[in-house]
């Protein structure tokens, strides 16, 4: 794939999504970066901000299989991954047959993921990292591409199970869905209450995303820029000399090496999206917050002082 085609596809995806998604350009751009990187995204925002619509629209625009799982406390792992059930053939012989769960799709919307129990949440671990599911004694590969776009509601804390650090680390980006402005709200009202409903057409495929990902991984990155990425990551560790005072004071654990991988890969993709053939420092700075905010864990003093990861990162 040529860089021009890369940009053309990205712009086409964004333009198609813009038919249904009002505003949220940065959010859409970030989700697109994560999907090109074949990464999973954790979306956090109030209900009704279009998280589900965004994910469903992505499925349509990218011509990908789409499934949605509403996570609830009584959701069982088998409800997500699938299970073996007893079936009977025409000859009357009974046998176990695997009934695939909603995980076997290209684009999985894990809605309100923090409402499920840790046991159910952990059932996603293997799927997100290995892109495979093991049920019983058999491992089954998930279709490619495979993305998990999970949402969580920051308001309702009762009856929720915060995601464990290991699972948070599997998400490429954690994106905050901002509340739309006045003009955007008016536009949302116009589009959703009128007689016509925008129809989205597929403009790219899963193969296109794979090609885009391959191209992005070839974008050169200078040593100085790489050093900067490393410096940013080490700066989140309170025991490192690179750490600023706020990190030393408020951070319990810094970001894992996956954070560095995310920084660099996201930077490469952003560079191509910006029409450049090299990673710039501003690319790293632009993706640093979504890439690291869920990988930095604050201590009690930060909670007491009302400091969040945004400020620390």
């Amino acid at each position: 794939m040529q860089p021009e085609r890369f940009q053309e596809l990205a712009l086409a995806i964004e333009a198609e999504l813009a038919k249904l998604i009002v505003g949220q350009r940065e959010l859409v751009r970030s989700v697109l970066i994560a999907m090109i990187a074949e990464g999973h995204v954790l979306l956090e925002g109030q209900p009704g901000l279009g998280k589900t619509v965004l994910v469903r629209s992505l499925g349509r625009v990218l011509d990908l299989g789409f499934a949605r799982v509403q996570f609830t406390p009584d959701l069982m792992p088998a409800d997500v991954t699938g299970t073996n059930i007893v079936t009977e053939d025409d000859a009357g012989r009974r046998r176990f047959e695997f009934q695939a769960g909603p995980l076997f799709t290209n684009l999985l919307l894990a809605d309100e993921i923090n409402r499920a129990t840790p046991k159910t949440q952990s059932s996603l671990l293997e799927a997100m990292q290995e892109r495979q599911v093991t049920v019983g004694d058999r491992t089954r590969h998930l279709p490619r591409p495979f993305f998990v776009l999970a949402t969580q509601n920051p308001i309702e804390l009762e009856g929720t199970y915060p995601l464990p650090e290991a699972q948070l680390d599997r998400f490429f980006f954690k994106l905050l869905v901002p509340f739309p402005g006045g003009q955007e709200l008016a536009e949302i009202a116009r589009r959703t209450t009128g007689a016509e409903t925008a129809e989205l057409a597929p403009v790219a495929s899963g193969d296109d995303l794979a090609s885009m990902s391959l191209l992005a991984r070839e974008v050169p990155i200078a040593e100085a820029v790489m050093d900067r990425a490393v410096s940013i990551l080490l700066g989140t560790h309170p025991d490192r000399v690179e750490a600023p005072d706020d990190v030393r004071r408020y951070v319990r654990w810094g970001a894992s090496p996956r954070g560095l991988q995310t920084l660099v890969l996201a930077g490469r993709i952003r560079a191509l999206l910006e029409g450049r053939y090299n990673v710039a420092l501003e690319d790293l700075e632009a993706v640093a917050v979504p890439a690291l905010r869920h990988r930095v864990f604050l201590n009690f003093e930060a909670d007491a002082a009302g400091v969040d990861t945004e400020r620390v990162v």
Binding site: P3, I221, V225, Y277, N278, A280, L281
Partner: peptide, 26 residues
């Protein structure tokens, strides 16, 4: 320059069409 010059200088002798594109961009 958004690190165009830095990258072009560092990969001045690097082969590959994307590097060539980068040097041309720089």
């Amino acid at each position: 320059g958004r690190e165009r010059l830095t990258t072009a200088l560092e990969f001045a002798a690097e082969g590959g069409w994307l590097y060539t594109r980068q040097r041309a961009d720089a």
